[in-house]
């Protein structure tokens, strides 16, 4: 669905943000985009949506160049940014004015989502709602537009705990084979079990793009008391260590995304090698 080749981007000449970045994304997946502050997560998302233009390289979204901002491409992109603005009108007026631009907009689904999220659309104008309510509203609108590509930048930021659970449920039901979700987040715990593919952005490149299944096959995530030599990465925790080791057997453990992320940032080269060997062993 999305092909990025050789992307070079920088806001200022002195500090390139992406260098020869390659990435392929498919439909039917919920991608989690992880990276340190300033690694360029938001910028990558903006490049995909055509909000900023790369200095070099090519991006194809549903076969078209997003910088062209063609109507047919825009009709299939929902972008839910971290900061946004809603006008001082009621929901009905907003929907009436904006939903027509999305040919697949599903009004009954929208109403369902509003109910699920318990957003007070009849009482308040959009601009007068709290940040969390506005966020849920934008998410509902984006999902109801039934676009093929949904990009979210820190969607759970600002949501209270019940809303986060509602969000997970909504996401679980919204994934279909022809849709692709890209979620940039720091709060992996909020999206635990929803993300099926992990992309880690670091040092101007994509250093990991693997499914949870691939990661569970290649690595073992265990809580240990001692650290045998097979452990690749470990963090101190209560009662021992949280560790990552190479998965030689056929064991299946739960992928700890936070641990994995830290490990990738510290010892990325080893991970790339290990991941490659695992692939080769499995698929050779």
């Amino acid at each position: 669905m999305i092909t990025i080749k050789n992307l070079n981007f920088s806001y200022s000449k002195s500090r390139p943000l992406f260098k020869n970045l390659d990435l392929n994304l498919q439909g039917g997946r919920i991608y989690g985009l992880l990276g340190k502050n300033g690694a360029g997560k938001s910028t990558l998302l903006k490049n995909i949506a055509g909000l900023v233009y790369p200095q070099e390289g090519s991006i194809a979204v549903l076969g078209k160049d997003p910088t062209q901002r063609l109507v047919e491409t825009l009709q299939q992109i929902s972008f839910i940014p971290e900061e946004f603005h809603l006008p001082a009108v009621k929901s009905d007026a907003f929907v009436k004015a904006n939903s027509g631009f999305y040919p697949d907009f599903d009004h009954s689904y929208f109403k369902e989502l509003i109910q699920e999220f318990a957003i007070p659309v009849h009482e308040q104008r959009l601009a007068d709602m709290s940040y969390g309510q506005k966020k849920k509203y934008i998410i509902s609108f984006g999902l109801a537009s039934r676009t093929k590509l949904i990009i979210m930048d820190e969607p759970t930021n600002g949501l209270d705990i019940p809303s986060k659970a509602q969000f997970r449920k909504v996401m679980a039901s919204a994934l279909t084979d022809d849709r692709c979700f890209i979620i940039s987040t720091h709060q992996v715990r909020d999206l635990d079990n929803l993300i099926d593919t992990v992309i880690v952005l670091n040092d101007r490149k994509v250093v990991m793009n693997a499914t949870i299944d691939q990661l569970a096959n290649s690595f073992l995530f265990r809580k240990m008391v001692e650290l045998p030599s097979t452990v690749i990465y470990a963090e101190q925790a209560m009662g021992g260590y949280n560790t990552i080791s190479v998965n030689s057997g056929d064991e299946d453990s739960k992928v700890d995304l936070e641990l994995l992320f830290n490990a990738v940032l510290e010892q990325k080269i080893q991970f790339e090698n290990l991941l490659n060997t695992s692939y080769n062993e499995q698929y050779a």
Binding site: G28, R29, S173, D213
Partner: peptide
């Protein structure tokens, strides 16, 4: 698959597995 995914708040691909 979808119903259980929603109930448990997990990715439907996982339930499929």
């Amino acid at each position: 698959v979808r119903e259980l995914a929603v109930e448990l708040e997990v990715n439907p691909n996982t339930v499929m597995r």
